[in-house]
Design a protein around this nucleic acid. Sequence first.
DNA 1: TATTGAATGCTAATAATTTAGCATTTAGAG
DNA 2: CTCTAAATGCTAAATTATTAGCATTCAATA
Lengths: 212, 212
Amino acid sequence: MTPFTETTLAHLLPAPLMRTLKASGRTTTYADGQFIHNRGNQEAGLSIILFGHVRFGIYDPAGSYTQASILGEGHCFGEATLFMDAPRAYDAESLGSTSLLTISAEMMKRLMADHADLSQALLRTLTHRLYAALDVADDLRTASKEDRVEKHLRRLIQMGGFDDNVLPIRQIDLAFALGLSRVSVGKALDTLQNRGVIRLGYGEIEILSPSE
Amino acid sequence: MTPFTETTLAHLLPAPLMRTLKASGRTTTYADGQFIHNRGNQEAGLSIILFGHVRFGIYDPAGSYTQASILGEGHCFGEATLFMDAPRAYDAESLGSTSLLTISAEMMKRLMADHADLSQALLRTLTHRLYAALDVADDLRTASKEDRVEKHLRRLIQMGGFDDNVLPIRQIDLAFALGLSRVSVGKALDTLQNRGVIRLGYGEIEILSPSE
DNA sequence: TATTGAATGCTAATAATTTAGCATTTAGAG
DNA sequence: CTCTAAATGCTAAATTATTAGCATTCAATA
């Protein structure tokens, strides 16, 4: 499988076009944990993550939080505001120091009309993301608990931004992301460790053979 | 929620462009159950379903079959061959009398260069399908069994091609599509029927309030 | 080094799901 | 109308997952 990072919008854009985009949008830098936009926001535009990570989820008025996904460097978001005329579906916030290039919907419209390359790059990332999402959905239906845990960990690695192959993640967060209980995930992780696939640490998990 | 049919490629293409596509590709009609392409096939191109349905899945050499999805009228497939340079991921066959418009990869490249509308329409469908897939994946993780069954049935209705609101589907197929056992799905269907959401029949399920 | 809050490990009771088998109902064929 | 194959309905045992609680380990810091 091709590394996921090579399928990001930033990687697919030719350098000159990337420069044009930078000149046509505005770059904003966020500290860790800053709000980027709220669910329901109508402002349309495309954002590209120059560095850092963005976490998407929904804050319930009651105070609970449901995480949807995390995107890393090179990825774009906001396609739904451009192509579905939909408001933001999630609350978004920075994870770690993060820089975003944001281009308004009108500007994107103009740029796409002038640069076929831009549409092509967007088509490529979206297709990759669609097939990745279909793959995730398929795994949820058919794969064993252990396989799902392993695949999820490998996906996190591929999303990039982590040193070595050590994921700084708690078992309870993993459980939540997978829709399982902590006990159940703990057992699966134990099995994977016994198979030599991972090494469990305190608040971290190391993938021993990341390329597989 | 917007009906899913309005987000298909065919619905998003302006009529003149659709005519151009028809003139640039070839139209093939299949009887029920004919093979369209095999998994691993390298021939790249985009297909649009003019009428009928296409079922995607994988035939195991051992004889077993794993269904991935079914697409109906107006939908396109083959994006992965254009935008990911990937071979066909699934075996595809017709469900009922089905007609396809197929356009080669080279021709698509030329058409997209000339017609920005084509790229835009593709971006719109793919974005819709991406968000639909993310929604499915999210439901698999978080929703109750009953909710998953109900949402799946509503999705099948929205994919269109069925008279009334009666789905000709066996409980065992539903179970497979949802990654649950027949007993488990039977219980969920019973609950939904008691709630007045559906009516169970022999080899069919009627959705009583399809618009909700 | 001792302390402390947080994360993991472990356990047992409860709940949910699957499996496998057989009974019943259904729709279509003869 | 009768028969038959297919689908659903039902049941109980076995498996698997969740919940809730407490014990243990870990890493940061005072």
